[in-house]
Amino acid sequence: MATVKFKYKGEEKEVDISKIKKVWRVGKMISFTWDEGGGKTGRGAVSEKDAPKELLQMLEKQ
């Protein structure tokens, strides 16, 4: 499965696309949330040019 790689608060992170729940556009950035388990929700953002095609497809479906 595809993953999204991004930096959050200076830390490199990687999230499996299948865990992503919500995707939206903020200017030229793609923001998203995912389920971290245990009732926690993670947040992240990646530039439109660095976003994997699967993430962009999720954005178009909404």
Rank of each mutant, 00 (worst) to 15 (best):
Ser31Glu: 13
Arg43Tyr: 08
Gly10Pro: 00
Glu14Asn: 03
Gln57Glu: 08
Gly42Val: 08
Val15Ala: 02
Lys21Thr: 11
Thr3Met: 05
Glu60Cys: 15
Glu12Cys: 13
Asp16Leu: 12
Lys22Cys: 15
Lys7Cys: 15
Phe6Pro: 02
Lys40Tyr: 12
Lys53Ser: 10
Lys5Cys: 02
Lys61Ser: 13
Phe32Pro: 00
Gly44Asp: 01
Phe6Gln: 01
Pro52Gly: 04
Lys5His: 03
Asp35His: 09
Glu48Gly: 05
Lys7Ser: 05
Leu55Glu: 00
Lys28Asp: 14
Ser18Lys: 08
Leu56Ala: 07
Gly38Met: 06
Ser47Lys: 10
Glu54Trp: 05
Lys19Trp: 10
Met29His: 15
Asp35Ala: 07
Tyr8Asn: 03
Thr3Ser: 05
Ala45Met: 11
Glu36Ala: 04
Met58Ala: 12
Glu54Asn: 04
Lys28Tyr: 15
Glu14Arg: 03
Met1Ala: 06
Ile20Ala: 01
Gly10Val: 01
Lys9Pro: 01
Lys28Phe: 05
Thr41Cys: 14
Gly38Gln: 11
Leu55Cys: 01
Thr41His: 14
Val46Ser: 03
Gln57Gly: 07
Val4Phe: 02
Arg43Cys: 15
Ser47His: 14
Phe6Ile: 10
Lys40Glu: 11
Gly42Ser: 08
Glu60Arg: 03
Asp35Gly: 04
Gly38Val: 08
Met29Gly: 09
Thr41Asn: 12
Gly44Ile: 06
Trp34Ser: 01
Val15Asp: 00
Phe6His: 02
Lys9Leu: 09
Ser18Ala: 12
Met29Asp: 09
Lys28Gln: 13
Ser47Gly: 15
Gly42Cys: 15
Leu56His: 08
Glu36Phe: 11
Glu54His: 04
Asp50Gln: 13
Ser18Tyr: 04
Gly10His: 02
Thr41Ser: 09
Ile17Cys: 05
Lys28Ser: 07
Thr33Asp: 09
Val23Asp: 00
Lys22Phe: 14
Ser31Met: 06
Gly10Met: 02
Gly37Pro: 08
Phe32Ala: 05
Glu36Met: 13
Met1Tyr: 10
Lys21Ala: 14
Gln62Cys: 15
Trp34Val: 02
Ala51Asp: 02
Val26Leu: 06
Gly37Ala: 06
Gly27Thr: 11
Lys22Trp: 15
Leu59His: 06
Ser18His: 05
Glu60Phe: 05
Arg43Asp: 03
Arg43Pro: 10
Thr41Leu: 09
Gly37Val: 08
Met58Pro: 02
Gly27Val: 07
Lys61Gly: 14
Lys61Phe: 09
Tyr8Glu: 14
Glu36Leu: 04
Gly44Glu: 02
Thr41Ile: 14
Pro52Arg: 02
Thr41Gln: 09
Val15Arg: 01
Ala45Leu: 07
Glu54Asp: 05
Lys28Cys: 15
Phe32Gln: 00
Glu48Phe: 04
Glu54Arg: 04
Glu12His: 06
Gln62Asn: 09
Gly39Trp: 04
Met58Leu: 11
Thr3Pro: 02
Met58Asn: 05
Lys5Arg: 15
Lys13Leu: 08
Ile17Phe: 02
Glu11Cys: 15
Phe6Leu: 07
Arg43Leu: 15
Val23Thr: 14
Pro52Gln: 03
Glu48Val: 08
Glu36Pro: 04
Leu55Ile: 03
Lys13Val: 10
Met29Leu: 12
Lys19Pro: 01
Gly44Val: 12
Lys28Pro: 12
Lys22Asn: 11
Arg25Pro: 08
Glu12Thr: 08
Gly42Gln: 15
Ile17Pro: 02
Arg25Gln: 11
Lys9Asp: 14
Asp16Arg: 04
Gly38Phe: 13
Lys40Asn: 09
Glu36Asn: 05
Ala2Asp: 10
Gln57Ser: 05
Lys49Ser: 05
Lys22Ala: 15
Gly39His: 06
Glu60Leu: 07
Lys21Gln: 15
Lys7Thr: 12
